[in-house]
């Protein structure tokens, strides 16, 4: 006896958050098939330079027990509500977030053996191990973006390990190693690694102590935000400037070793601080493009970073801190 095929396709209107959405499932088989029920599921789909993932955001019933008659297309209308407070659709450098709807068609166990999995056109169907056929379709989501709003915060900036530290640390380690050990053996390598880290740590402490500390206070301000910069007396960096950037970070755990991919999504104008005295007040605007809200979803994150740069003699020094910007309704 030849096996039967079941073809299905989902049709869904454009989705707007918190409003009822209409759609229908069209299924057709060349033999009569009994269905125990059809469940609808909405997923957030993360794809990019990582193991792609689906995260269920809602489920609903499409139909109860029904029968697909041989050769007669069955159209099953349904409605659902897209839940509020979901991630906006996002197309980044290393990752994208979209939403998709799936219909899980639970075939009656007496009919499963009759069935042959099939593909038609753009529709992908899977017969999973629970005897359900899945039909999926990406959904077109209306505007999920809103305005940016900073989460007020006061914190100290952290100094970055710069080229200067690396350079000086390397020289220091090289000189000390030469002085202590005259011949090359494995010990040199171990001592060099340990000394390098110690030297780097000490150098960082010395630089921080000699330059002074700097902290920022971030406050809401209409279409942008205020950044107040507090520097300790005698903060000696020259050519100081501040800017913020938005960074996308994706940890790729595929395979036997992890890789971190980062991309700068946006960099603000850099503002000079040299003539602004001890405490500076800067105003920054948000980017025109929406959708870059602070977030962390598994191995994917978007974070906003305030940066302060300057020079100690000829050596560039930079400080940074992370801050949060959330989405609010316009």
């Amino acid at each position: 006896m030849s096996q039967s095929t079941l073809n299905g396709q989902l049709f869904i209107d454009e989705v707007n958050v918190a409003e009822p959405v209409s759609g229908y499932l069209l299924i057709e088989s060349d033999k009569t098939l009994h269905i125990d029920g059809i469940e609808g599921e909405l997923y957030l789909e993360m794809r990019g330079r990582l193991s792609s993932q689906l995260k269920e955001v809602a489920s609903f019933e499409i139909a109860g027990a029904t029968t697909v008659l041989a050769g007669e297309p069955l159209k099953i209308p349904f409605t659902f509500v897209f839940p509020m407070n979901q991630m906006p659709v996002y197309e980044g450098e290393n990752v994208s977030f979209t939403y998709r709807c799936e219909a899980a068609i639970k075939i009656n166990e007496n009919d499963i053996e009759k069935l042959e999995k099939s593909f038609i056109g753009k529709v992908k169907m899977w017969l999973n191990k629970y005897g359900a056929i899945k039909v999926s379709e990406h959904i077109s989501l209306g505007e999920l973006t809103g305005a940016y709003q900073i989460v007020p915060k006061k914190q100290q900036l952290r100094i970055d390990s710069t080229f200067m530290m690396f350079f000086l640390g390397s020289i220091l380690v090289f000189l000390i190693t030469l002085c202590i050990i005259q011949k090359f053996d494995e010990l040199i390598l171990i001592v060099a690694v340990v000394l390098f880290n110690v030297a780097l740590f000490l150098l960082k402490k010395i630089v921080v102590a000699s330059i002074g500390a700097v902290s920022v206070e971030l406050l809401k301000d209409g279409t942008g935000f205020i950044c107040k910069i507090y520097r300790t007396k005698g903060f000696v960096l020259s050519n100081q400037s501040a800017y913020y950037d938005i960074v996308e970070k994706v940890i790729d755990r595929r395979g036997t070793s992890d890789t971190t991919n980062t991309a700068i999504l946006f960099t603000s104008n850099s503002k000079k601080l040299t003539e602004l005295g001890k405490n500076a007040i800067l105003k920054f605007d948000y980017p025109e493009k929406k959708g870059w809200y602070s977030m962390k979803q598994g191995d994917v994150s978007i974070h906003w970073r305030m940066n302060l740069e300057g020079k100690l003699s000829i050596f560039p020094i930079s400080y940074h801190c992370l801050f949060e910007v959330k989405r609010v309704e316009d």
Partner: peptide, 13 residues
């Protein structure tokens, strides 16, 4: 394409 074809795939794919 529904998504970048060279993105990581889902386990079911």
């Amino acid at each position: 394409y529904s998504y970048n074809p060279f993105a990581g795939i889902l386990e079911e794919e």
